Simulated assay, not measured.
Amino acid sequence: MAELETRELEYFVAVAEELHFGHAATRLAIAQPALSKAIRRLEARLGVRLLERSSRSVTLTPAGQALLHHGRHALNAVSAAAEKTRRAAEQQARLRLVIKPGGDANLLSGILAAYAGRPDARQVDILFGGATDRADHVRDGRADVALLYAPFDDMTGLDHETLTVEGRVAILPPDHRLATRPQVTLADLAQETLPRWKGVRWTGAPEAEHGPQVTDAAEALHLIRLGRTIAVLPRSLARPMHPDLVYRPVTDAPTSALVLAWAQDDRRPLVASFVAAAVEAAGRT
């Protein structure tokens, strides 16, 4: 089989993620006809159909789904090779931590203080990622460590230490039928409209097949205030609590964990020292 080129993978992954040639072309900053021609050429070289196209939609074939999965990892590996090569040339290493804004369960200050007290501590640069891309920051070398939520984030290719485990809460508008209860169960939520979290793995909590798609908690909270949906979130991600909404523990929802993750092949003392400091600080809370 002909070898794949990195640019071909970039083109295909963009189309596969957007499921729209126009949006993908804009994202890649190329002309749409050129992108369509490149995808057709890729399909011809591989001898398989990757996409089903109609005048109204673009969908992935099973072969396309496989290439999207493996192609993402291949692009991450290429990016990581370049980034780690550059970092190997740095004389003064710095540690880069990627987090989601508000996604530290109030542990970050203690972790940074514990690390700063270690004799081998280096400067820590804080990077902010989105709801679903922080693990990719570690896999492709943009960050050394990440604060992630299990089971929401994809841990493929990563090692991790659990810092804290927490329950989940249902977030409801104040006039909701369940708002007067002190706590709720998953059965209580079975007929409710819940959001679909874009790019987030299945979490064991209810998710509406036809609920509104959201990319982060801020979008979900806005829709809850409008009465369009409710949501089930880890307790720490529901803070600070919005005064116009009601928060109720979901007693039988699967727990979630805040974890510190790093690349499986990363054995640098820099990373090991930070992980040890984080586990130590979390254990004191």
Score class of each variant (00 low, 15 high):
Ser236Gln: 06
Thr193Arg: 15
Met241Gln: 15
Arg225Thr: 06
Leu233Ala: 08
Arg225Trp: 01
Trp202Asn: 14
His210Met: 02
Pro206Ala: 09
Asp244Trp: 01
Ala205Lys: 08
Arg228Asn: 03
Val250Pro: 13
Asp216Pro: 07
Ala238Thr: 03
Leu221Gln: 12
Leu233Glu: 07
Leu233His: 06
Pro206Ser: 04
Thr251Leu: 08
Trp197Cys: 05
Ser236Met: 02
His210Ile: 03
Met241Glu: 15
Ile230Glu: 13
Asp244Gly: 12
Glu219Cys: 05
Ala205Cys: 04
Val214Tyr: 02
Ala253Pro: 09
Ala205Asp: 05
Thr255Leu: 13
Leu233Cys: 00
Arg248Thr: 12
Thr193Val: 15
Gly211Asn: 02
His242Thr: 09
Val259Pro: 05
Ile224Lys: 07
Leu194Asp: 14
Pro234Cys: 09
Trp202Gly: 12
Leu223Lys: 08
Asp216Glu: 13
Pro212Thr: 01
Arg248Pro: 10
Arg239Cys: 13
Thr229Trp: 09
Ala231Gly: 00
Thr193Asp: 15
Thr203Asp: 02
Arg248Val: 04
Ala218Phe: 01
Ala257Val: 06
Leu260Phe: 03
His222Asn: 08
Asp216Ser: 12
Ala220Gln: 12
Gly211Leu: 00
Leu194Val: 14
Ala231Glu: 06
Thr229Gly: 00
His210Asn: 04
Glu207Asp: 01
Pro195Asn: 15
Val259Tyr: 04
Leu260Gly: 08
His210Phe: 00
Leu245Trp: 12
Ala205Asn: 02
